[in-house]
Nucleic acid binder design. Structure first.
Lengths: 112, 112
DNA sequence: CTCCTATGGCTAGCGTGGCTAGCTATAGGT
DNA sequence: ACCTATAGCTAGCCACGCTAGCCATAGGAG
């Protein structure tokens, strides 16, 4: 999986992992790996800065806790994040439909 | 349509426009615009450098001609470009299936 | 004639954002 | 003593689409 293909779609994936309740960063990373059959095995250097960006944007809200002697930062969707997720979903639909049509579809109209 | 979502997928789209015969850059741009219902209205500054990159990579081959007093550079797929297109198609399948599953799918397994 | 638009091509440099490399720290197994 | 998994973080690199700008011809509008 080339790296660049993820650009612009990561936020949607991160938000989606939070749709059913709070998760901390590492759990998000693992959820994406497992949920994609290993395709999205994102390094921490991808996940953590992205979460900070989403938090600054007000789409998620994080809070510290300590579990088993390890500190965790758990994130949950804000109302604005919920809306952003819906938006991301529909724009993914739009985008993927268009690309699939162009790539897989019927022969192209004759060239000029 | 946010700009970054295209990153990493442009080559596939460009190669796909050439699958049914040669096209020049401007025609490629128009084909993508028309074929996507206006979603992919790419500026020249996106298309031309990308074509040059693909040509340097040996995936397409360009040749100059003059039509109606205007010079054109027409591109066609090389055999290696054909293979690249097939590859791009299957990796798009892979990618889009994964994202769709993560975004749209069933509820996530319970968080740890 | 002049101007605008569409056609057709190009480049320099910007900006976004995921990745690499590197770091800290605890828990638990070998 | 060492390694792995868990858990978090940052600085800086780099790929690549975009902005802004340029050149040139054809054809229609004014």
């Amino acid at each position: 999986m080339r790296a660049e293909v993820l650009k612009g779609h990561l936020d949607a994936l991160l938000l989606a992992t939070l749709q059913d309740g709070p998760r901390h960063g590492y759990a998000i990373k693992e959820a994406l790996r497992a949920g994609s059959g290993g395709r999205f095995d994102l390094p921490g250097g991808t996940v953590y800065p992205a979460l900070h960006r989403l938090e600054r944007a007000g789409l998620i809200r994080g809070s510290w806790s300590v579990v088993n002697g390890r500190r965790r930062r758990s994130y949950q969707l804000t109302p604005s994040g919920q809306r952003a997720l819906s938006q991301e979903r529909s724009s993914w639909q739009d985008f993927s439909t268009a690309v699939t049509a162009l790539l897989g579809g019927e022969p192209w109209p004759a060239a000029t």
